[in-house]
């Protein structure tokens, strides 16, 4: 585990990154500092919510899962070794809880198109064709094997590096890339079959 950042370290090295700030906040959180925890919530709740939402498909469940993820992070802060960033650790907790929730509730829903998508400025027929293609693609993503889907969600929608994806998916970077390779190949094949 890397050494904790001290004010002296920050003074000597200049500005801190978001990860460094997270580590400082995490250190304080480990001491039971609720303000530090609240700051981490404000920083990360949006991305965690959107990630979880893609699995559970509704606001109420997504909020419950996000809340549970943060509570788990709070309770287990002491056990966090710091091998990864706080963000990837939190994502891993959230994804596990989301998968548990979906499994237990038996909900593997197909994505519904949002108003946001329906309001695109395209003529009626073209809009319909695009909407169907988008729905088809989203459905294909959701039927990927779980780890392949996770790698695609984290890489394409969350913009995480393969190293971060590997930490969350609990595999090597090469395995994350291999999962990505097979996922894209599979999507390509399924979309090709649909045409």
């Amino acid at each position: 585990m890397e050494a904790a950042l001290t004010p002296m370290h920050i003074a000597m090295t200049g500005t801190t990154t978001i990860q460094d700030d997270d580590r400082l906040l995490l250190e304080r959180m480990r001491e039971g500092d609720r303000e530090a925890f609240s700051e981490l919530v404000v920083r990360h709740q949006r991305q965690v919510f959107y990630l979880v939402w893609r699995y559970v498909k509704n606001d109420a469940d997504a909020k419950d899962v996000v809340q549970a993820a943060f509570v788990k992070a709070w309770q287990n802060a002491e056990a966090f070794r710091g091998d990864s960033s706080f963000r990837t650790w939190l994502y891993r907790i959230a994804v596990n809880l989301a998968l548990n929730h979906v499994r237990d509730s038996g909900k593997w829903k197909t994505a519904e198109l949002t108003e946001e998508h329906a309001s695109h400025e395209v003529p009626g027929m073209q809009r319909l064709v695009e909407a169907e293609a988008a729905q088809q693609l989203r459905k294909a993503v959701e039927t990927l094997p779980p780890k392949q889907r996770l790698v695609v969600e984290l890489r394409v929608h969350e913009g995480l590096s393969f190293r971060e994806v590997a930490e969350i998916a609990d595999c090597s970077e090469d395995a994350a890339k291999a999962n990505f390779h097979h996922a894209i190949k599979r999507l390509r094949s399924e979309l090709g079959n649909a045409e």
Partner: peptide
């Protein structure tokens, strides 16, 4: 994939 609309 990147052009898919935000789900939430």
């Amino acid at each position: 994939l990147r052009s898919l609309p935000g789900q939430a």
